[in-house]
Write a protein that binds this DNA or RNA. Sequence first.
DNA 1: CGGATAGTTGAGTTATCTCAAATGCAGTGG
DNA 2: CCACTGCATTTGAGATAACTCAACTATCCG
Lengths: 254, 254
Amino acid sequence: MPASTPENAKSDSTQGISACSACAFYKLSLCAAVRKKFESAAAPPPAGPTQLTSSLHTIPARRTIYHLREWSDFISVICNGWALSSIVLPDGRRQILSISLSGDIVFSTGLFEPISGRVVEALVEVTYRKFKRSEFKALLFEYPDLFEMFTKIWNEERAQADQLILDLGRRTAVERIARLILNLAERLAERGMMSGQKMGFPFRHRHIADAMGLTPVTVSKMLSELQRTGLIEISSRSLTITDAAELRQVAGPR
Amino acid sequence: MPASTPENAKSDSTQGISACSACAFYKLSLCAAVRKKFESAAAPPPAGPTQLTSSLHTIPARRTIYHLREWSDFISVICNGWALSSIVLPDGRRQILSISLSGDIVFSTGLFEPISGRVVEALVEVTYRKFKRSEFKALLFEYPDLFEMFTKIWNEERAQADQLILDLGRRTAVERIARLILNLAERLAERGMMSGQKMGFPFRHRHIADAMGLTPVTVSKMLSELQRTGLIEISSRSLTITDAAELRQVAGPR
DNA sequence: CGGATAGTTGAGTTATCTCAAATGCAGTGG
DNA sequence: CCACTGCATTTGAGATAACTCAACTATCCG
């Protein structure tokens, strides 16, 4: 399988962010969907010299990108869709590290050094915006608010990783799956992507398995269990939480 | 159990880092042991205005610190000893997130927001140096080299976390333990803390279990296995790798 | 209507856990 | 110096969660 090349690169480069830095950056990077924390990061409107260029790209659903080298020089932010980043071992074992939604920075991990074995997969058609890392860094120095903001994001991602470590190390299969669902629901809600208790759920069982250190078969059994006991309902790529309280119970402490 | 208060706080505060920033910072923070990467981060010697104050502290062996609130305002760097940071669940389950050695920043995770449920434990007597976060941040802005350096460190830590996620999600018990040993050996070697293939190994089985998502009993069996097959040797809190090649084999791919 | 991919279900296997008893080991106080 | 106490480790036996295998069914898509 060849590494995919970015198709549909509508490059609307050389857009300065002169007027309102964080706000403009937010609009440039996050497109429609946005997290609250981004909104709260109101920046002063200084006349900064740095121009931030960016370009918009699209990856078709289910396409896998093997270690995109260009990502050493660019930062990518999801505008739309679901992306998965994972590590794969030569023997085929795979572990998904994170699920990126609109507004998330893809792969902040290898932000400065690219790491081999890393894979990003578009679970669904993904559009993302690419920024030059050099310009971005310059900007960080110019606007302390922006710096503060990205520091927060970085920390949150790390906290997320820590939770995953806890899940994989110390929780049972059902707990892991319940937490995945609750976690996703929360993140989708932040983005206004929940309709009531109903959310998009575009995963194959394989994905859930690779995310939570399980087997597709086990995932199937656990999901069936959760449905049979009336905690959730799944149909046509979407999931409804029908008993949030009990689901949280099943998800275990904290 | 009460939260421990820092005893033996030899406060040699108000030491400026006027002459050579990174170098001075290194001396202040890292005491004797240092990683190569720190050395390579040579900084220009500008006459910076910011003074970096710090103080030295000691925690006795085996003491546990429950969510030290002061760490919201301070950054701590290990000077000597081994520290563990972990998450504990109310039902007693525990997962160690990282093992910090000399030169490591403790808990860079909750760098800006403290997170409850976090615990730091001194595996062995630990001395560390505390810096005011505000001053530290100001410094980061003044010296881009320093910024670059910490960015690298942060990324490395995240990469380490990703590897742990992979280990917990997709590797067997022996693999996990073999990797823990090899990993530690590598990090200790960087610090000049290996004598040949022999390294300090101050863990109780409980620690290894909590670090790798296993049970003390399983850890015991795996370590016995590794010794019986002549890959390692353990005696009086130290471990010798007697067959590195085979140990790497056992540790699995990558 | 195929053909492919994904999900379900049951049966049997296995890695890891739990329990428990036995041993070792380190520090304490007589 | 020696029992004594408390912890850590070892070892074995049995239990169990999660895995593998495999056959069957459902769903999707041309």
